[in-house]
């Protein structure tokens, strides 16, 4: 009966998960099949989504935006994590703290800081204008670019941490072994360092990509009219239009997408598994 006693310790956590995650999710799932007018079970909410080209296009552009944020994050996070783990052994704690500061800042504070920074009278514009680089200002606020900047800033630190951990775990003598076998620095990176850090890269990619797909605060505040994404559409359904049933249906389409991508990233990560 030992096994039961041990598993009993997981019951509180299981109960929490059940009450606060699974049950609300099931309620939402059920909601997504209810008709707005009659309240009867129906597929019309999903039909509405898949038959309206606007929603499909919006999903596509949200995916594209999330992908862009993920790629930019990777380009920033990988070198940073690499330098921290393998080059600056002394300074790494300072950089680590600096990169994870966004973790601790409130989301709204962070987003409004960007708003102030990017707006027409903001620092960035004045800087560019004073150097004569942009006559009428950059006009970057309320564009997709502003959204991408805000989202990247919000999520890339997670990626730094996952990649850093993967590189930190890696034995330096693997790099030396590769060099001793005649490989150049680049080959060593491409064939040894990067593949071994792949599990960290893949969890970083997941951790950035998935929340981007559902984001609505950054798109709304920094993107304005150009910031419409799936996340803002769902939010509108719930809080502006009271179309809960349709909102729930879109949310589950998004959920399905997330599951598909997580599966794909997982499979990609497993290709480099060491077992």
């Amino acid at each position: 009966m030992k096994v039961n006693k041990k598993s009993a310790m997981t019951w509180p956590a299981m109960l929490m998960l059940l009450c606060f995650t699974l049950i609300p999710l099931l309620i939402m799932f059920e909601t997504s099949f209810r008709s707005d007018e009659t309240g009867t079970l129906t597929l019309e909410n999903y039909k509405k989504f898949f038959t309206n080209f606007m929603y499909i296009k919006l999903t596509g552009s949200t995916l594209l935006m999330s992908l862009l944020v993920t790629v930019i994050s990777l380009l920033i996070a990988y070198p940073l994590a690499y330098i921290m783990a393998k080059k600056l052994k002394g300074l790494k704690n300072v950089i680590l703290v600096l990169t994870i500061i966004p973790f601790f800042t409130n989301q709204l504070v962070r987003v409004y800081s960007w708003l102030i920074f990017l707006q027409d009278g903001g620092i960035l514009n004045r800087l560019f204008m004073s150097f004569g680089l942009a006559e009428n200002g950059l006009g970057i606020l309320y564009t997709r670019a502003a959204v991408v900047i805000g989202l990247t800033h919000a999520f890339f630190p997670y990626m730094v941490v996952t990649i850093y951990m993967a590189l930190e775990r890696m034995d330096d003598s693997l790099i030396e072994a590769s060099m001793s076998l005649g490989a150049s620095k680049w080959t060593t990176f491409k064939d040894v360092i990067f593949p071994i850090s792949m599990p960290g890269v893949m969890s970083g990619v997941t951790i950035v990509f998935v929340p981007c797909l559902g984001s609505f605060v950054e798109p709304r505040i920094l993107g304005g009219v150009n910031g419409t994404v799936i996340g803002t559409v769902i939010e509108d359904q719930f809080f502006q239009l009271y179309g809960w049933n349709f909102g729930a249906a879109i949310a589950f389409v998004l959920f399905a997408l997330v599951l598909i991508f997580m599966g794909a990233f997982g499979a990609l990560g497993r290709r480099w598994e060491t077992e």
Binding site: D171, S173, L174, E176, A177, S178, S180, L181, V192, P195, I196, M198, W272, E273, T274
Partner: peptide, 14 residues
Amino acid sequence: GIGMVFQSYALFPH
């Protein structure tokens, strides 16, 4: 043109 066997073997795990 050296060949080295490391104290920790350093085989590529992947």
